[in-house]
Nucleic acid binder design. Sequence first.
DNA 1: GCTTTATTTAAGTTGACACTTAATTAAGTG
DNA 2: CACTTAATTAAGTGTCAACTTAAATAAAGC
Lengths: 109, 109
Amino acid sequence: MINQAIHAITEPRRRDILYLVRDGELTSSAIASHFDISAPAISQHLKVLEEAGLVVVRRAGTKRFYGLRREGFAELKQYIESFWDDSLIRLKEAAEEEERRNHESKPQQ
Amino acid sequence: MINQAIHAITEPRRRDILYLVRDGELTSSAIASHFDISAPAISQHLKVLEEAGLVVVRRAGTKRFYGLRREGFAELKQYIESFWDDSLIRLKEAAEEEERRNHESKPQQ
DNA sequence: GCTTTATTTAAGTTGACACTTAATTAAGTG
DNA sequence: CACTTAATTAAGTGTCAACTTAAATAAAGC
């Protein structure tokens, strides 16, 4: 799922779509009106975003309202942050290990 | 730069490379030994990561040590977070606007 | 200065994927 | 039930980028 989410935000146009829907729900055609690509193209992007868990659809008659799915976004945020945090922890550990080694021998080039 | 960073972490193998170098510097060939793709392929990935500001190189003789560039990562984290935070603010505003409208008329389907 | 080691650049191939138009589904509406 | 509206699925096309092998660079070692 997280891999799908990252893949989804790969495409700049999909990020633009996320920017549009984060303020509130929009129909597929309302979203399409902001771009100069065809409606099917938008529909395909929306499908990718939906499958990645980043947007949700609400059907109302012939219309389909797309909105941001906050949980999906939270996961994405989590992923980036955990990468970052783990990195800091590991950096600290590495520095300590380095410190220990320096008391025994010279560091190699 | 932020677009380059997002593009850079798009590719799963590049994320794997970031995982490898976040513990400490590694040479191009040391990184390559973890994958079953050619050295030039790794070199090309490293170039993308470097241009995105996510890794830095330190040259030592014929070797090149690649390491994580923390500032680059901070920017990426910032981007995701700002998207998220702005979203919450805008959601709150939208909810208030909705509230106001509900005192006048029924919401349309 | 030739050879080795580490890595990159060059050039070409292949597969994925972001589009297109045309056809299809699905829900109202006269 | 034909017609309109909203959107999707289908099918095909072109571009890009992730790989490949081969050639080039660049520093060190003999």
